[in-house]
Design a protein around this nucleic acid. Structure first.
Lengths: 351, 351
DNA sequence: TTGTACGCGTTATCAA
DNA sequence: TTGATAACGCGTACAA
């Protein structure tokens, strides 16, 4: 029986506001989306009606009509990690401050899951996407372009000029840290890395060390590399493996701080002192790095800034049609306690 | 000029699928939402058309017509904290596994921001909400009920039977830990807490200690309490303040592990050994607690389980109209190294 | 089991 | 500056 107006049924609609303010729905819509088009007098009347009715636009209707949702998707490998959490928090805060909201999905470092999540978030109407790293099936990039969804790639530096990047040069940072260690006298270097597959950041960090070795005339092919999952326990196990197979190792570089913390623990379990018996380095400079003893010498990554700038870049692409932009942030080596010149080893180490 | 069908314009719509499959749009819709209503033959035909067109339902249209978005909002105090990150990750995974997606907002522990976020996420069409803690203006609860949005409160145990809770008893856990410490002989206890305002968890944790003291005939009014922001640095500063004003303190209990880590560092800076000179306890049992030396004696909270069950509870409320449910998870005391019987103090402590 | 037709609440185009 | 009004794409009574 309800046909004209539901009076005071559920929640207020544009039409309700229009009726109260004695204007058309078009005018109300304009007041909300493009206030300059409306005269002061009517706008005040409309806004008053909006507040008295406690009106809030229906999201679905708006998305349908405007083809924009004002939501942005972020797909990160995992949330259980201080690195991504910080960047994400910064990303979200910029979004909120600009009236947008954030959709989050995690991929567990699985490219297939990531692809699904990308499709899901786009289907959910995300206006733009934050992606981590550049390794991705070509089909995924094709899909992104064909749907015309702006996206920015973070945590890594640019390769393709037509896509936006806000990140840092993993390879150069790693190379610099390795060069520093080599300068200190290290020759037998081992590496503990996260999975290299579909993870350009991890690969770049390994490659940086290799290049540094070559730079100094060392043979990088003999560097033992352990590839493992991303956890402290795995770092511990990897450390044991490296030191067992290559007891001559004086430095173990790790692809990130979490693995490095595990490596430190592993060294201690083996009866090795850090850095006296073996040096260890990390990457990321998360809080953990300052807590463990010895504190980690590592690469500082400006996570917060990266999240902030990624959000700003994405917003400009979506809202102002800005073209792709590449931002490379500076990293720095933070020298703490876990790296020193290679020392003398005891003649016989504990089993 | 386009009036009937846009041929191969942008993205496929329901109508496109219907045309290819030679059925009505209603049938296609049914195939997607209620397959049992459709005969096998036509369904197969329709699904084939769906895949060839790579069809994916328009989110806005679906939300508008169905009044459901299949998205769930989560509002947490901060993402830069392992505690919430883990629970959130678990929450998200359940959601994704059930075909839903997660909207995230953080409130920075500010009740006003939280309220704004609640309104935003609801306006954004969230079908249900995950909220942390029970402290909230009555107006917020009124709003929630009047909009009829299901929500579950996590990280705390039930007070109101008409709202869903998935959490644990902060007070009881804290009380148990304090009782253990008092049993060990501690009499002079200090407390470092996160802000107590609009934070029932923090208050309960303090109150638990007070009750334990009374249980053992101690005067809980003289317990020094420092209220501070949630960071390691703040924990460090608070520790200095307590030990300066109350040098007789033998145990400093902390509202969470982050503060406790700061307290341990603060103790070391004061030249105090932990636990020989002063014992320290935490709460949460995050990874940090196992890294610091001495490792933290703390309360273990089942974050992952909590996130999982919160998601399941919320989904059942929304999808099956389940009524409010209260789940209280077990916590346990994890005895590590930072708590021991009060020892002898050096006659003169370093400044 | 399938189709018709309307409504959902906005935005945006076009006139006035 | 304002008002009609036509999309927008889907779900769902209701009818067949």
């Amino acid at each position: 029986m309800k046909n004209t107006k539901p009076l005071n049924s559920e929640v207020a609609t544009l039409a309700d506001v229009a009726q109260i303010a004695c204007v058309s729905t078009a005018t109300v819509s304009r007041c909300l989306n493009n206030p300059v088009q409306v005269s002061d007098k009517t706008r005040q009347r409309v806004m008053k009606a909006v507040t008295t009715l406690n009106y809030s636009p229906n999201f679905g209707a708006r998305a349908l009509a405007a083809k924009r949702t004002n939501t942005y998707g972020a797909i990160i490998p995992t949330m259980e990690n201080a690195i991504f959490a910080r960047g994400l928090q910064a990303f979200e805060q910029v979004l909120v401050s600009r009236g947008a909201t954030m959709l989050v999905a995690s991929s567990s470092y699985d490219p297939q899951i990531e692809e699904d999540q990308i499709r899901t978030l786009i289907a959910r109407g995300a206006d733009g996407l934050l992606l981590i790293g550049r390794d991705r099936e070509p089909a995924v990039y094709r899909f992104l372009r064909e749907r015309n969804v702006p996206f920015v790639i973070a945590w890594t530096s640019a390769t393709a000029p037509e896509t936006s990047h806000v990140g840092f040069d993993n390879l150069a940072a790693s190379r610099a840290l390795a060069a520093r260690a080599i300068g200190l006298g290290h020759r037998q270097i081992g590496f503990i890395s996260a999975g290299l597959n579909f993870n350009d950041r991890a690969r770049d960090r390994v490659e940086g060390v290799r290049l540094a070795m070559r730079d100094h005339g060392l043979d990088s092919n003999c560097m033992p590399i352990i590839e493992t999952r991303y956890s402290i326990a795995c770092g511990r196990a990897a450390m044991a493996a490296i030191m067992t197979d290559h007891p001559e190792t004086t430095l173990v570089m790790c692809g990130n701080d979490v693995l490095a913390v595990g490596a430190v623990q592993g060294a201690h379990l083996l009866g090795l002192r850090v850095p006296d018996d073996v040096s260890i380095t990390g990457f990321d400079d998360i809080e953990l790095a300052t807590i463990i003893r010895p504190a980690l010498t590592t690469v500082h990554v400006p996570h917060h800034t990266m999240g902030t700038m990624a959000a700003e870049t994405l917003l400009e692409m979506v809202r102002e049609g800005a073209t792709a932009r590449q931002i490379v942030l500076e990293t720095s080596i933070v020298e703490r306690e876990s790296l020193s010149a290679p020392g003398m080893k005891p003649l016989s180490r504990p089993a």
